[in-house]
């Protein structure tokens, strides 16, 4: 599988979350994703970006294009050096929130993409990768 890094986007303010959505939209559109797939990956990225900002204390988005044979996909990876998540299963479950939200961001993002990968440990920060294939 070939990966091509496109760019990184800092996540330091709520305006940056809007920029994340715009970048993801731009690249999803440029690779010819359908409107429905675009909206799914944009919405999922918006969720994880906001968690990165709110719970991770800010971080970074890495945008990559993947090629696997004839298949092309967009991978968005968010990383932060925040407190990390002790119980990932609990955090992923619907309606669990420690921040007064709806508690649907993590679970919802997972349902919106084709591949979802989360690595997190208390004190080690959090890294979440989402892939949407075209």
């Amino acid at each position: 599988m070939l990966t091509e890094t496109i760019e990184t986007v800092p996540i330091r303010s709520s305006e940056d979350i809007v920029r994340v959505r715009q970048k993801v939209r731009f690249h999803a559109d440029a690779m010819g994703m359908s409107l429905i797939d675009q909206t799914k990956i944009i919405t999922a990225a918006s969720e994880i970006a906001r968690n990165t900002f709110e719970y991770g204390g800010g971080g970074e988005l890495l945008l990559e294009i993947l090629r696997d044979g004839a298949r092309r996909g967009l991978r968005v990876t968010f990383s932060d050096e925040g407190p990390g998540i002790a119980d990932i299963e609990q955090a992923m479950s619907d309606h669990f929130t420690t921040g007064g939200g709806l508690g649907l961001g993590l679970g919802g993002a997972k349902r919106l993409v084709n591949e979802f990968d989360i690595k997190s440990q208390p004190g080690e920060g959090t890294r979440i990768s989402l892939i949407r294939w075209k």
């Binding site: 409107l35 429905i36 675009q38 909206t39 799914k40 919405t43 969720e47 619907d94 709806l102 649907l104 679970g107 919802g108 349902r111 919106l112």
Partner: peptide, 13 residues
């Protein structure tokens, strides 16, 4: 719109 309806369902909203 249709794409928004789909994301609303997937998010579980």
């Amino acid at each position: 719109r249709p794409q928004i309806a789909q994301t609303i369902v997937h998010l579980g909203l």
